[in-house]
Write a protein that binds this DNA or RNA. Structure first.
Lengths: 148, 148
DNA sequence: GTAAACCCCGTACCTAAGTACGGAGTCAAG
DNA sequence: CTTGACTCCGTACTTAGGTACGGGGTTTAC
């Protein structure tokens, strides 16, 4: 089997059928070919694409940003230099996210390391180290953009 | 100066005044003391707290999850073991996010590395490497939870 | 060849996370 | 001691990201 109907794709990717239509409208999912009946026929790779979208969302990318990420793939009428630059921008973004997550990870680790595992919370003094650690890693406000 | 009024806090933290009230209602921001007039008086540290919330959001945590993260600080009536366990859970989450972001970073890097910097996109073959790389790092569907 | 299970589409509805509004009280600078 | 800026609160609106509905056509499994 090479192409999937909406229902199959939705099931495999773990999303709602309506979500597929929604993504298509939003330009995240390339419009698939249709059979005469009007039924969509998705290539099997669409599963990964959708899973990527879902995961990217959980990493804090908006659908708009995800569209931009995906746009780094194809798209005619752009120069390679252009793509390259956009990609470099994204890399900076991603690295900042990683750095911030690591700060959170460290703070949480400090927590578990000091918190031996019994007794009431009042005897667990590290429970204040969190926000000293966090909140750094903040750069500029990072304008919550939104395009299209 | 030791305490801030809503407007000052909002400005320093870079959010809307209404957002503060909103966070307070949602239990993210501890309810501050008031002067007789009813005006809120926030401690100066609230700035960091709010910035943390904002940043955590950009890393893909929902307000509910952020509340949980913050709850790892104080809160009576819980044992240390309990806190420890929740923290370990969060650490797993965070590590998975980091791993996924790294996969994205690698994919983007591959892009910039191969894409030399000029010529039309059609001559830029790497623009397909993206989704091979991505979409891995996916574990289980990671139930999009939502509590409270 | 017909019923159950799918798919189509447009439109309406929902939740999370804010934002705005507006009437009334408060503060502080002149 | 007043005026402009700020605060209060409740309620309503908005935007992003879906979800649901429902009337009608299509497929597929008996």
């Amino acid at each position: 089997m090479e192409h999937l109907k909406t229902g199959e794709l939705a099931k495999r990717a773990g999303v709602n059928v309506e979500t597929l239509r929604f993504y298509e409208r939003k330009g995240l999912l390339p419009v698939p070919p249709r059979r005469e009946s009007g039924y969509r026929e998705y290539p099997a790779e669409s599963v990964r694409l959708i899973q990527f979208i879902k995961r990217a969302q959980e990493l804090g990318f908006s659908l708009g940003e995800i569209r931009e990420l995906l746009a780094l793939r194809v798209q005619a009428g752009t120069t390679c230099a252009d793509v390259r630059e956009r990609a470099e921008h994204k890399i900076d973004d991603v690295r900042q996210k990683i750095a911030d997550l690591r700060a959170i990870e460290r703070a949480l680790q400090k927590l578990t390391a000091t918190c031996i595992g019994s007794g009431p919370l009042s005897e667990c003094p590290i429970l204040e180290n969190l926000d000293g650690e966090l909140g750094s890693g903040l750069v500029q406000p990072r304008s919550r953009q939104q395009e299209r």
